[in-house]
């Protein structure tokens, strides 16, 4: 398949190389001509502009820093919109805003061009090796048609919903990643100031129940399927553990804003009379205040997801 690829930075170069290795004919473009050298010597064609790149390809992929760069390659006489034939899809692998990709989708739809947001996760190493997630939002039929191309770049390509859904998934994922890192920083600074060696503390935490699990596994058996009674671990006991931990933070003088917020959540849940329910009942407060009904997920369906990746 003849494919256009714009943006050959740390992420883009790995993904473009994967497409070439899979036998696709690439046309490449980047604001830095030198970034394309490796790809061109491996057989890719160079295009002087996004518009030139777009002519004669079956799909275009972009991997760019953010919203302004994506808008810049779309617009103008030399932009993608000027060059793309109706029906030729554009997959944007950049991390973009949800409103931005929806607006771009609507603008391109007027030219008959399917636009899909397809942000990725896995870092430069994953982009090079193919151990990569691609979360795709947009037209399902287009996703299905280009599935083999996506699979050539990533072992975890997922259709997640209509336009913008890929970006929602990516932003939620990165938000979790950030808050988890902050939580680790709080816990480690408390533990180290309380006298543990950093590496011993880190190794100890990795050996615990949460340490052994993959990051998101913790909620699969209880909160997701709404399986909160009877408890395996009662909320009142977790409340006690967190109380002891933040008392330790007090004693050693470590500011712990996230932990305090989590403790306040649990206090609120105890006030609801949930002390003997499962500890994850506390998470239902957030669901309630988001205005969401119980998710109504079947435990078997959740287990199937656990087995798929």
């Amino acid at each position: 398949m003849r494919i256009g690829f714009i943006g050959l930075g740390l992420m883009g170069s790995g993904m473009a190389a994967s497409l070439q290795k899979a036998g696709h004919a690439l046309v490449v473009h980047d604001i830095d001509r030198a970034a394309a050298e490796g790809h061109v010597s491996a057989g890719a064609d160079w295009a002087d502009s996004p518009a030139a790149l777009a002519r004669g390809v079956e799909a275009v992929f972009t991997s760019l820093p953010g919203p302004p760069e994506v808008a810049a390659v779309a617009e103008g006489d030399e932009g993608l919109i000027a060059g793309l034939a109706p029906g030729t899809p554009w997959f944007d692998l950049s991390t973009n805003g949800v409103m931005e990709v929806r607006a771009l989708h609507d603008r391109l739809a007027r030219h008959g061009i399917p636009f899909l947001d397809a942000p990725v996760s896995g870092g430069p190493a994953g982009a090079a090796s193919g151990k990569l997630a691609i979360w795709v939002g947009g037209d399902r039929a287009v996703f299905d048609r280009f599935r083999p191309v996506l699979d050539a770049m990533a072992d975890q390509a997922r259709y997640v919903g209509g336009i913008g859904a890929g970006s929602v998934a990516k932003l939620c994922h990165n938000l979790c990643s950030t808050v988890m890192m902050q939580a680790i920083a709080e816990a480690m600074t408390i533990g180290i100031k309380a006298g543990l060696e950093p590496l011993q503390l880190y190794e100890a935490m990795r050996a615990g129940a949460t340490g052994r699990a993959r990051s998101f596994d913790i909620v699969h058996a209880r909160w997701l399927p709404g399986n909160l009674d009877p408890a395996t671990f009662q909320l009142r006991f977790l409340h006690k553990d967190v109380r002891l931990a933040i008392e330790l933070a007090r004693q050693v003088g470590v500011p712990s804003r996230l932990s305090e917020a989590a403790f306040a959540e649990m206090t609120e849940a105890l006030d609801r009379g949930w002390g003997t329910r499962d500890a994850q009942s506390v998470l239902d407060l957030q669901r309630e205040r988001a205005g969401l009904d119980p998710f109504g997920l079947d435990a078997n369906a959740v287990r199937e997801v656990m087995g798929r990746s």
Binding site: E260, A264, T267
Partner: peptide
């Protein structure tokens, strides 16, 4: 009482 503001102020 969940001391959301209080705890944040203390921190």
């Amino acid at each position: 009482i969940p001391m959301y503001f209080g705890a944040l102020t203390r921190e």
